[in-house]
Structures are given as structure tokens and as C-alpha cells.
Design a protein around this nucleic acid. Structure first.
Lengths: 108, 108
DNA sequence: AAACCACGTTAGATTATCTTACAGGTTTAT
DNA sequence: ATAAACCTGTAAGATAATCTAACGTGGTTT
């Protein structure tokens, strides 16, 4: 069951590159973090590191902002989506568990 | 025919992160560039930017170095491999071309 | 012995990023 | 309609990250 945390999710991109990839200003990128829309990691020295997923997310955020949606609202939407995804995940695991109980499947 | 230049090949990683990902020293990473084994891009200001593919390649290089193979040799190997890959690619395209000529397939 | 290899290390300069703060035009709430 | 909150620009000063160039060195190779 390989959730490898693939390249797409590895936090390796500095803010300057994210700026270039997204067209956003560094100010904006940091602000969206302040509003809890995005969660970069940090280097030992304190520099932010983003993933490609983060970059994609930032572009979605930028679109919504352009549509006049506030960070506040965007955050709510994101939480809603996450909740739904977690539920789906749960259901999936539940069913898998039932199957394993019934038929005793091995884990590799 | 989507050669998207996917995430894996996008040059977005700074040398410090590459150092952390590979365990190599920055000196080594720059040296392998000097020996033409690796080809980072640059930011406007002159900082090197690597891709995940580059990171993988660097780890392969590191292994060969450990086995006592010289950069000189490694470079030759790499050129050999590339040549072969280009040939394969060519053949593939040739055959595709033949098929298109015979059966007139559309391109989308 | 001379030259080359694969680095380590240092120095100094430059680029990149960080936080904090103030400012200001817009939108939202009271 | 005033106040408050929103979103962003900009500036200052500090720190982190990267750059090039150079010297040194133990271990091969020629």
C-alpha cells in the first residue's frame, strides 16, 4: 500500500522559485500561509520549502482570490473538502477491514 | 503525445536541498557539474536549480564513484546510454511514421 | 617525478530569504 | 457612515544560502 509521498508532495522548492512558477508575489505567498491556506516546511535556517502540490494549490487559491473569494472562505472550503476526503478514506479502509476479517488476506 | 516535462524533470531544487537529499557535499555536486555529469539551470541571480531526476542521477554517480569509477569513465557511460536511448527513440518514431503513412492515422 | 583526480576548506562577495512594521485602497460588518 | 477587517506593496535590517576563485592534499596514473 504505497503512499510513497511522491515527488509531487516533497517539500523542496524555495519561495523564489514558487514565485516564478506561480506568478504570485512573495508577500502573497507568505500571507496565504498566515491565513492557514498553505503549510511549507522549513530548512534548518528557517527558509520555507514548498512542494509541487503546494504550487498547484497556490494557483487554485490565486484563482479564487481573483474571483473575489476571501481567504476566510477559501479556508472553509478546503476544510470541507478535506473532511470529505477523510470520510471517503475511512470508508475505504472500513470495507477493506471487513474483507480482511472475512477472508483473511495478507498484508503484502 | 505528451512529453510534459513532468515534475520530475523540472529544475526547481536549490543545491542545499540537493545536498540534504543526496548526502553529498556541495563541493561534490559542483564538481560533478564541472566534470559535465550534471547540468543544473540557474536563477536570474545565478543560483543553481536541479530536478528530481538530477537528484537521482547524482546518487547513481555517487555509487559509481564509490566503486572507484572515475568521472571521466562515468561520463563516457552516460554518453553511451544516451546514444542508445536516442536510437531507440528514432526507431520508435520511424515505425510510427511508417504506420501513419500506411494507414493515415490522425495526430490527436 | 609530474600530472591528474576527487575532493576539503577558506575567504569574500553576492543573492535569497526572513521578520516586523507601516501604509493604503477595498470590502465587510456594526 | 464609521469602524474594522482584508489584501497587498514596500521598506529596513538581519540572517541564511549560494557563488566563484584559490590553495592544499592524499591517492592514482602516466
Amino acid at each position: 500500500m504505497g503512499n510513497d509521498l511522491s515527488y509531487k508532495d516533497k517539500k523542496v522548492i524555495t519561495i523564489g522559485v514558487v514565485r516564478d512558477l506561480t506568478g504570485l508575489s512573495e508577500r502573497q505567498i507568505r500571507y496565504y500561509e498566515e491565513r492557514k491556506l498553505i503549510f511549507p516546511e522549513r530548512t534548518a535556517g528557517g527558509s520555507r520549502k514548498y512542494s509541487f502540490s503546494d504550487v498547484e494549490l497556490l494557483m487554485k487559491i490565486a484563482n479564487k482570490i481573483e474571483d473575489g473569494i476571501q481567504t476566510h472562505e477559501i479556508r472553509k472550503e478546503m476544510i470541507r473538502e478535506q473532511k470529505k476526503q477523510n470520510q471517503d478514506e475511512m470508508r475505504r479502509k472500513m470495507i477493506q477491514g471487513q474483507l480482511n476479517a472475512q477472508f483473511g488476506l495478507r498484508k503484502n
